[in-house]
Simulated scan of single mutants.
Amino acid sequence: MKSKNVIGFFSVLMGMLVISALILAVVSAFMLNGHMNFGFVGGGVIAAYVISSMVGGFCIGQIKGKQKFLWGALMGAGYFLVLLLVGNVVYHQGPAMNFQTVSSGIICVVSGMIGGMLAPADQEKS
């Protein structure tokens, strides 16, 4: 049973990363074609965090059926940790705990929690 939970968690996490990549590709295309400013790019990155975390929280909430807000928050935290680790590997630096990093983590966790709470309740799993 636990291996099924782990596989489900990582499947949703991979889906979240694909959604983020798609959103960032759209933002990149708009920036390339429209000569957008940095505010647009920052908004696109935050939108990728919010949408991906909400979708992940919603999916894991549907899978689990109970304690959906907690599972959604864990999904958002897992998503943020993957982004943090990949960023550290790419830039060959340790984690920089500044305001932007902390606020990004909070955005991911809260968005995942909201997505989990929006998932429909399954009466059989409760």
Rank of each mutant, 00 (worst) to 15 (best):
L17W: 07
I51K: 03
I46F: 08
V89D: 04
L22A: 14
F38Q: 15
M117W: 07
F40M: 00
P120R: 09
S11Q: 13
V18C: 09
V55D: 08
M31S: 15
S52V: 05
G78T: 08
G78R: 10
V86H: 03
A29I: 14
A21C: 09
G76A: 04
L84W: 11
A47C: 01
L17A: 15
G65T: 09
I46M: 05
D122N: 10
A119D: 01
I23N: 15
Q62F: 04
S53Q: 06
I63C: 09
F9T: 11
V102A: 07
L83A: 11
F30N: 08
K125Y: 01
I7W: 05
N88P: 05
G44I: 00
N5A: 14
G76K: 00
K66L: 12
M97H: 11
T101A: 12
G94Y: 09
K64Y: 09
M14H: 05
L85A: 15
L17T: 08
Q123V: 13
I19Q: 02
C108G: 08
V27C: 10
F10P: 05
S111D: 04
S53P: 08
S111F: 03
M1Y: 04
G61D: 10
Y79M: 13
N98M: 01
V12H: 02
V109F: 05
M97D: 05
A73C: 03
V110T: 14
S104T: 00
A121R: 06
M54Q: 02
V102L: 11
V18P: 05
I7A: 15
M117F: 09
L85H: 12
L118I: 01
F80Y: 11
A25W: 11
V82H: 02
F38T: 14
C108S: 13
S111E: 02
S28M: 10
F69Y: 10
I114M: 14
H35I: 10
F80G: 03
K66C: 10
W71C: 08
F69W: 14
I63A: 14
E124T: 09
Q123Y: 10
V90G: 03
V86T: 09
V45E: 03
S20I: 03
A48E: 04
Y49C: 05
Y49K: 10
L85P: 09
N5Q: 10
Y79T: 06
H35Q: 12
V82M: 08
A73L: 06
G43Y: 00
Q93F: 09
G56M: 10
L70F: 13
Q93A: 14
S53R: 11
M75N: 13
V82D: 04
L32D: 07
S11Y: 04
L24E: 01
V82N: 02
